[in-house]
Each structure stands twice: as C-alpha cells, then as structure tokens.
Design a protein around this nucleic acid. Structure first.
Lengths: 198, 198
DNA sequence: AGGTTTACAATGCACTTGCATGGTATCAAA
DNA sequence: TTTGATACCATGCAAGTGCATTGTAAACCT
C-alpha cells in the first residue's frame, strides 16, 4: 500500500480550488495548471486524482452543490428556536445571494447551469439538484401542513414548485443588482403569505 | 470608400454564428476560427468586424437578447385577438423553454449569466436585461390596471417583480426537465390568478 | 488616373491547453 | 528484503488559442 493519504479529501481540496477559480474568474480560468497552482499541488497530482478535466469539473460542481446542504442546516440550527414560518423564511433567505458566501454559491450555480446546457453529466447534475430542492421543500411543507398552519385545500406539490420558482427567479435579478434585497424579501414574504395562515 | 457592405448586418451574421455555437456547444466552443467557419467567412473577416474576442462575444449576447423582443411581439400579433389575461399568459409562455427556439434562448441566457458573473460589461448587460424586462412587465400591468381587471390595492411594481421571478424561476427547472410543462403552466396560472380578477 | 479607405484573406507567432509519459518516493504486505 | 501498489513530480507534445502583420482587391473621391 502507498502513502497514507485520504483520497477523497484530496479530491475535495482540489475541488475547492476549482470552485475558487470558477467563482472568481469563470470556468475557462480553471485549467489543470491553474487549479494545481491554486490548490498548491503539482499538476501531476491533479491528474492523479482526476482522469480528465471534465471529471474534475463535474466533481467540483457536485461537491460545491453538496456543501450547500450542511451549511444551510448549520445556519438554521444556529438561528435558535424560530416559528415554522420564520424558519422557512430563513431557509429561503439563505439560498439567495445576500452575503458573499451565497453570492459565490450563485456564481457557481450559474456555471453549473451554463455547462449543463451542453454537457450530459452536468445536465443530469443540475436536473437532480432542482428535483431534490423541490422534493425537500415539499417534505417541509408536509410538516407545516401537519401543524395545521396551512390552508387545507392547498395543493402541496404545486405550492412547493411555486416557492422554488420564486426563490430561483429572485436569485438572478438579485445577483445582477436588478432587484434590491428589500424588494426580493418583499416578494418572498408575499409568497409565504399565500402558504401560511394568519 | 470601399466595397459596398452593410457593416452592421455582417456583424449580426457573425453574431448569429456565435449564438449557434454557444447554444449548441457552449462559449468555450466559440473561438475565432470556429466562428469564422460557422459563419462561412475567413478568420480575418471576423477580426475585421470585432477587434477582440470579448467584443464579439458581448455583441453576440447583446444581439441574441435584442432579437427576443421582436420575436415575442410578432408571435403575439400572430396570435390574434386575445383577452388581456390570455395575452399576458401567452407572453410569459413565450419566455419559457417550451419549443426548441425558446430553449436556445434559455441556453444563450445561461451563457450570459455565467459570463456576467465574471465579466464587467456582460454583467451590465444582464443587469439591464432583467431591469428592462421588469420595467416592461410593469408598464403592461399598468394597462391592465387601467382596464380595472386588477385588485385596486395591488402593489404594481412588486407584482411585476413577483411575476418576473416566477417566470425566471420556472425557466431553469423546465430547461433541465425537473418540472414538466404542465406543472410550470399551473404555477404560472396560479400566479396570474393573483393579478387578474374573476 | 491616382490616392485613400474599406473589406477581406493568409500566415506567422507566442502562448496555453489537455493529456501522455517516465521517473522517483513512500508505504505495506509477502 | 523484495515486490507492488499508490502518490506524486517533471517534462514533452501536438493541437488550439487570440492576436498582429502583411498583402490584395474593390470601391469612391479629387
């Protein structure tokens, strides 16, 4: 057996270098050499952990996406006890590009979308990401429904898709400064008003 | 004076070659050489009309975006006499990736967003595009308000932003197949229900 | 007719790209 | 201690990149 090295952690380290480059200078800036330099390793090392550049990019986008979940859960936990509606509001707020961290996330997501338009595996990744987000929102809506804080005749799956659409649609105008944070939050609140009672 | 050539039309021709490449293979596929080949001209010609690649890309994205307006207006005119609400619904439907033409538009838009994250001029372009769309929707909403087909207490600017968000947010899940067209239209109709009376 | 400007074409150049190759160092099992 | 697998590193290479340069043909102006 070889040197004792955590294979997956190395891959994640490199992936984060990719993410750094992609979010600050675009996908085209993430070449094998620049990635190696950013990660502080040799180019041969990058090649050792990823057979091709495509595989590296895909893994990086996947990893960046996977990091979103834990972050949101951590911030939600830190926020302390909130009402169901407040929790919901905070959750969606975390998805919007308000702080620099979220803006990075949005920029990475833009790269994912653009690549997903022309690359099969990335397309699948983006597709799953949207499906998973919607499914998650739907599950959470189920909890709200159990708590009877919701109109009884509400179509939950459709409400989930509606909510996801609003948040996703706020993201880009926000990122480009076409909407102000206040305007975006007003829209988000209006949407939540349609779900939560009183 | 030189050969009789419509300068702007040549630029547009080249821009459309760029759009073709970008929407089918991504921005990275649009090199000076491939663009020249796609447009059926020499590489020197491309250089003659665009000083740098950045300028070419920016113009192409701008042109592709500018073509959207006339197309929508034409299709709206062709649709014949519709009620205000039907017109509105058709308008937003045309923005969503239902037919191949609109899907191309969405893919181009994805390239615009991704590039706008890391390139100043493109950022401005994207920002203006969102602002203009919202302003247009707001103007149209004003007409609906005059026709008294709208709740009197509705906050029009906010309603416009909400509408734009929903449509923009439906675009990507649709493009990646996470939502079906029926699901998307249901969300759109639900949103229109909040604006139009009866 | 000569001069000037525009339209295009061909080619060269320095540079970067992804990837392959060959080598060395490090560890654990046999 | 040999073997073999992994973990790197350095370098080479063909292909492609954006851009500059040069040359040529066409049109209008004086």
């Amino acid at each position: 057996m070889p040197k004792q090295v955590d294979h997956d952690e190395r891959r994640r380290t490199i992936a984060e270098a990719v993410i750094e480059l992609v979010t600050t200078a675009g996908v085209e800036a993430a070449s094998l050499r620049t990635v190696a330099a950013e990660a502080g390793v040799s180019m041969g090392s990058v090649q050792h952990y990823f057979k091709t550049k495509d595989e590296m990019l895909l893994f990086a986008l996947e990893h960046g996406n996977a990091m979103l979940g834990p972050r949101v859960q951590r911030l939600l936990a830190e926020a302390g006890p909130l009402s169901l509606r407040e929790t919901y509001r905070l959750f969606f707020t975390l998805l919007l590009p308000f702080d620099e961290q979220s803006r990075r996330g949005a920029r990475l997501w833009a790269a994912l979308i653009a690549r997903g338009c022309v690359d099969g595996p990335t397309h699948r990744l983006a597709s799953d990401a949207y499906a998973n987000l919607t499914a998650f929102v739907l599950r959470e809506l189920g909890k709200v429904a159990e708590a009877k804080e919701i109109p009884a005749d509400l179509d939950l799956p459709q409400a989930a898709r509606h909510l996801v659409s609003v948040v996703e649609g706020l993201r880009w105008p926000l990122l480009f400064g076409a909407f102000t944070p206040e305007q975006a939050l007003a829209v988000l609140d209006a949407q939540l008003d349609r779900i939560f009672l009183g």
